[in-house]
Every structure is written in C-alpha cells, then in structure tokens.
Amino acid sequence: MKKLINDPKNVVDEAVAGVALAHADLVTVVTDPIYIVRKDAPVAGKVALVSGGGSGHEPLHGGFVGYGMLDAAVPGPVFTSPTPDPILAATKAVDSGAGVLHIVKNYTGDVLNFETAADLAAADGIEVRTVVVDDDVAVKDSLYTAGRRGVAGTVLVEKIAGAAAQRGDSLDEVAEIATKVNSQVRSMGVALTPCVVPHAGEPSFTLAEDEIEIGIGIHGEPGRERIKIEPADAIVERILGPIVDDIPFASGDKVLLFVNGMGGTPQIELYITFRHAFEVLASKGIEVTRTLVGNYVTSLEMQGFSITVLKLDDELTELWDAPVQTAALRWGR
C-alpha cells in the first residue's frame, strides 16, 4: 500500500484540516464534533441543507458546502457513517429558523444516524425533513443497504435542492424538489481495480488483471457481474442500458449526463466514456442538454467510473444553472 498519509487513525481529521486551510473563504470547520459549514452560516431566512456520510468519497460531501448547495457536511470515518452527535451539531449550527433538509445516501448506517439526529433536533424545536437518495440501478439490498444504494446522483440532488433553498423556497418545497430529482435520476458504475481503506492496509476486494466489476458500489460492494475487460464503448453500453431502461428514459427526453470518476481514472478516459454515452443517448432520441464530467463521488483510489442520467424539465434546468460557489462546483458568481 502506498498512500500519502501519516497515521491511518488521523486521515479524516488531517484531511478536513486541509479543507479548512484551502477553502477558508468558503467554509468553517468545527472539530469537536467534526463537521464543515458554509462561512456565512446560518443564513437568515433560508432553509439549510445538511448531508454527510463516510469519508473516502471526496469531494462528496465537504466539497459541496457553500453558496447554492450545502450549508453543512458531516464526514464520518472512511466508509463509515458519522454518528448522530456531529449530525445534530451541524444541524443546529446551520438552522436559521426556516428548517433543515437532511440529504442522506441510502446506506443503513447513514439512514439510522441521520434519523436519530433529526429526532433529537425536533426535540430542540428544529423542523427537519429528510430525503434519502437511492439512484443506483445495479442491485437491491446490497451489503450496506436495504433497497438501492445512493451514489453519484446525490451530487445532483444536493445542487438542485441547494439552488431551490438559495432562491428562498420553503422547507416543504425544497424537500419536494429534492424528492423529484431523486425520482428522475439513475446511476450505475464499474470498477477496474479495488481501493485500499487506510486502516485496513489491503484491497477491499480482488479483481484479476483482466477482470472488471459491473455495478460496483462506492464502498467496493459487489455489483451485478464480474467479466473480462472490454473496450470502453462496450462497457458504457453495459451500464447505460440498465439506466435508460429503469425509469425508463424515452425519445424526446432532455437529460443531464454525468460521467463520474471513482478516484483513480484519468480525465482522458472519462471523456472517452462520456463521448459514447452521449452518442448512445442521442441514438435513442434522448437529448443531452446539461453535462458534468469529473471525479465528484469517488471511492478512494479505485479505477472506474459511473454514469448518471437525470431527466430534466425547465425548472430543474434553471436550478441546475443557478449560481453555485463551493470548493468542487462553482459557476455563475
């Protein structure tokens, strides 16, 4: 194992300290308990958005804290949910009286701990709504999950709901927008290599040199099948097919196409896969009107990628285009 770390026990603390120094204009980091908030939190009269989960998926979630997106992010240990205490502390820190929306990826630990924190916040008079993201079409009832996993579609939920909150929507309206995005977004991924969790010191699973895992989870959970590696276009077709068939997406739809790297995939390869995904959608009469390509929901140093497709309408497009200023996404300001 070769990693740029010191003590494996301090990886999250030291990384978050780095975030605080690198993005001091955007965020403030609290260390006991640990969470990240936007610099101007709480924002008077605005619904606050809080998300979080295990570390190792950066820039998710801390990289999306700032204007037009999240008000707070709560990092847990690598691939492990944060406990209710920091979630509650973050919720209190960003509440301005307009209520708080929790955006939670569908993993059992995340769901339970955010639920506990929401109950405790309610006891303190804070109104909380929760939207659980479950966009992964690969499998149901996976290693960490009852139902479908929450993966790269989480970024789109956070961005669009964040824009709704920023324009002044009510808590119910922001929760409704987030729910709508989750209902219209689908994702699936593939792994070319495993990743190494720092405290484990060995790969989280094994793949032969000529094997890939179709439908991998962002913690290295098993996917649909393990096959011999194929050309990029064939792999794209394998994972895009189930995505398109799921809602299903249809000719005439306008969509956002998001190709996400798992942490160890060069950008040049992501653009190769994006090109063919765009072509396949076009061949089905599905028009790509918005795009995102890059490493946004990673699995440490895993080589691989995921494809996410979101069905757009005028309102979702407007909210996607709205200004955002975070460490990992910024435009329009």
Rank of each mutant, 00 (worst) to 15 (best):
T265H: 05
A277D: 12
G261N: 11
I307F: 06
F278K: 15
H276T: 12
I307G: 06
S299N: 08
I272P: 01
I307P: 03
E279P: 00
V280I: 12
L257W: 04
K284T: 00
G263E: 10
T291F: 08
T273F: 03
Q303V: 11
G294F: 00
S306D: 13
R290E: 15
S306N: 07
Q267E: 06
S299D: 07
G285Q: 09
V297P: 02
G304H: 15
A277Q: 14
K311S: 11
L300A: 09
A277I: 13
Q267N: 03
V293M: 13
N260M: 06
T289V: 15
I268L: 12
G285P: 05
V309F: 01
L312R: 13
L312T: 12
L300T: 09
E269T: 00
V259N: 06
E269A: 02
S306K: 09
E287Q: 15
L310A: 07
H276Q: 08
I307T: 10
V293A: 10
Y296Q: 01
L257N: 04
T273R: 11
G264L: 04
T298W: 04
R275F: 09
F278N: 15
I286R: 02
L300R: 04
L257C: 06
S299Y: 02
P266N: 12
T289D: 11
Y271P: 01
Y296L: 00
S283R: 15
P266Q: 11
N260H: 03
V297I: 12
V280W: 01
F274N: 03
V309N: 01
F258D: 04
H276Y: 14
L310I: 02
G304K: 15
T291M: 14
M262V: 11
P266E: 10
E269L: 04
S283Y: 11
F274M: 02
T298L: 09
V293G: 10
G264C: 05
D313T: 08
I307W: 07
E269H: 02
T265F: 04
L270S: 02
E269F: 02
G294Y: 05
D313L: 05
T291R: 14
E287W: 11
F258S: 05
V288D: 10
N260I: 05
L312D: 11
M302I: 03
G263V: 09
F278G: 00
G261C: 10
M262S: 14
K311D: 04
S283C: 11
T289Y: 09
M302V: 01
L270H: 03
F305W: 03
L292F: 05
T265W: 05
A277N: 14
I272S: 01
P266R: 12
T265Q: 09
Q303Y: 00
E301W: 10
T265R: 06
I268M: 10
I286A: 01
Q267C: 01
L257S: 08
S299T: 15
N295P: 04
A277H: 12
E287M: 14
K311P: 08
I286P: 04
E269Y: 01
F258T: 03
S306L: 10
Q303H: 06
V309K: 03
